[in-house]
Design a binder for these strands. Structure first.
Ligand SMILES: [Mn+2]
Ligand SMILES: [Mn+2]
Length: 252
DNA sequence: GGAGACC
DNA sequence: GGTCTCCAACGCCTG
DNA sequence: CAGGCG
């Protein structure tokens, strides 16, 4: 999905799933399905830099891709751990939860790839075998979140209702792995005047990173110096079996 | 930002 | 040709 | 089921 701002980031935001009419024929699309309503949409599938340039010309600021590939839309190859801080939680709290996340990932033999979200939170990608459907990936993500919450104590609150959630806590948003649920991609700009960028970081950087410092003004230099610190994300492919066993053991 | 509908 | 409108309805949650 | 959540 594209988040477009035809009159600028302070103007109206347009959520766009279907590729706009009049797109050049070299822009690829992928058909995604919404079985609940027996509907579908042809969304942009980025395969070249030119596709990004075209989308930006069309006033796109934020890119929110599915967690699966054009070649196998129904079976995600990415498990996304979405840390959403409540209003009174600090980035220091996010750091502490990230530490727990890394610990639990380590325990199950998974490699996580963290990035700032563009807001106050953090995303962690895990490359997975494209073998399970959205429901199972979400179940696995939930089981993982429960374990993180267990270890993190009051810091993590998995309550769905915002108003019932501790305002100082971090929500581990396992639902973000459901069908048609997306998060801002790596290197996507956020549609705010500060033009913050969702920026891949190394685990050891999290301790002293300030996410607000990653903007369109600073990230190009960082990228020039370090390259993409998520290079290597495809080297280890994780299997969800153990997490799904956790999910089966635990009632919901 | 741009297509398509309406005038 | 000028002006206006449309660009998402998806899946999961709880009560 | 309706309405909140992201
Ligand atoms: Mn988030
Ligand atoms: Mn979220």
């Amino acid at each position: 999905m594209l988040h477009r701002f035809p009159t600028g980031v302070t103007g109206e935001k347009v959520h766009q799933k279907r590729l706009p009419h009049g797109a050049p024929d070299w822009v690829r699309t992928v058909r995604v399905h919404f079985p609940r309503w027996n509907r579908h949409a042809d969304e942009l599938c980025v395969t070249h830099v030119a596709d990004v340039v075209w989308a930006v010309q069309m006033s796109t600021v934020e890119f929110h891709p599915w967690n699966s590939r054009c070649t196998d839309v129904e079976q995600p190859d990415e498990w996304r751990i979405d840390l959403d801080p409540m209003p009174q939680a600090s980035f220091a709290d996010v750091r502490r939860v990230a530490g727990v996340v890394q610990e639990v990932l380590d325990g199950i033999g998974a490699v996580g790839w963290p990035k700032t979200s563009g807001g106050k939170g953090l995303h962690v990608y895990v490359r997975i075998e494209p073998h399970w459907g959205f429901t199972d990936v979400r179940r696995a993500a939930h089981a993982f979140a429960v374990e993180v919450a267990r270890r993190a104590g009051d810091l993590v609150d998995l309550t769905w209702w915002r108003k019932d959630r501790d305002p100082k806590s971090i929500f581990v948003d396992y639902n973000q792995n459901a069908r048609d649920h997306t998060i801002r991609s790596a290197y996507s700009v956020r549609g705010v005047p500060e033009a913050v960028v969702s920026t891949p970081v190394r685990w050891d950087e999290i301790a002293d990173v300030d996410p607000r410092e990653f903007t369109i003004a600073t990230v190009p230099a960082r990228f020039a110096e370090l390259g993409d610190v998520h290079t290597g994300i495809d080297d280890a492919v994780f299997l969800l079996d153990e997490l799904l066993e956790w999910a089966d053991r635990d009632p919901r």
